[in-house]
Design a protein around this nucleic acid. Sequence first.
RNA 1: AGAGAAA
Length: 258
Amino acid sequence: RGDIDEAHGILAQMMNSLSHDAVDGSHVSPINSIELEIDTEVGEYSQGGHLKPNHITYTTLISAYCRAGMLHEAFAIYEVMVKGGIMPDEITYSSLINGLCKEGKLLEARNLLKKMQSVGVFPNQVTYTELIHALFKSGKAQEAYDLYDEMVRRGLVSDTVVFSVLIDGLCREGKLVEAREMFEKMPNLNLIRNHVTYTTLIHAYCKSGNIQDASMLLDEMEKEGLKANAVTYNALIDGLCKKSQINEVVEIFNKMRE
RNA sequence: AGAGAAA
């Protein structure tokens, strides 16, 4: 977070025209109150004030704050951005929505989804995927499916990531057969199944004690030229250990090290 | 040049 604040300092340096008052203080948490003060050291190369940050500059910083769980700061930057006449785009909103989702603020995330549309910025499949993922994670499967339907109705194209999220969501509900059906449908829809897609299903099979299907998928994924990673192997090893299949664990363990 | 998924 020290680095993010330093980045923020550089942003302040670039702008130099916006005063501290431009930040809506109510969104700034007391411990992390944002000061747009000038760092003289970075000032040497950025020649303070002559470069205008664009929507990407702002979004990069907003995204960093969101990832650090510093939502107040992220929204403060968003305010500065809007007040400075820089229009946030769907990536800016997606960054904020993802930050809200990660903090469990699903209602606020959904409100922001509405808000962005009310100002003419349209969510894309990434925006929807973030919310769908968060809904599944918090056990709201039906809302997740409904949101996916909405996404499709809007003509947004499904990609590998949304499908992986849906497969994961179905698995979490114990609907392994439906999850497998989605997985099988992907190639017909010209969707690439990557190592995450495979690992999601492998993990679900292992957790349900179905080591056989898990191993078959591992073989299939390798035939597709995909490499199993530590997450894939851990899922398998965990599944095997729980069934006390120690010989198979050793086999997988050795395969990992090849 | 910036946002989303699996132990």
